[in-house]
Amino acid sequence: MSEGSEEYSAVQKFYDNIWLLLGIGIVLPTVLFTVWGLYEVYTLPYLPIVK
């Protein structure tokens, strides 16, 4: 990976990896917001009606 003599920090390598950013940028909010939310929508119990 070394190009020239300079050392690059791991974070710099991460920020330069646009595909990794794309992947995380889609997966993280989809799981945290959408999947979790849909799980709550479809597991909501029915109103217990007192007859």
Binding site: Y15, L21, I24, G25, L28, P29, L32, F33
Partner: peptide
Amino acid sequence: RSAFVLYILFINV
């Protein structure tokens, strides 16, 4: 750049 990465990861929620 860190600020943009924070956008990518967290702003969507």
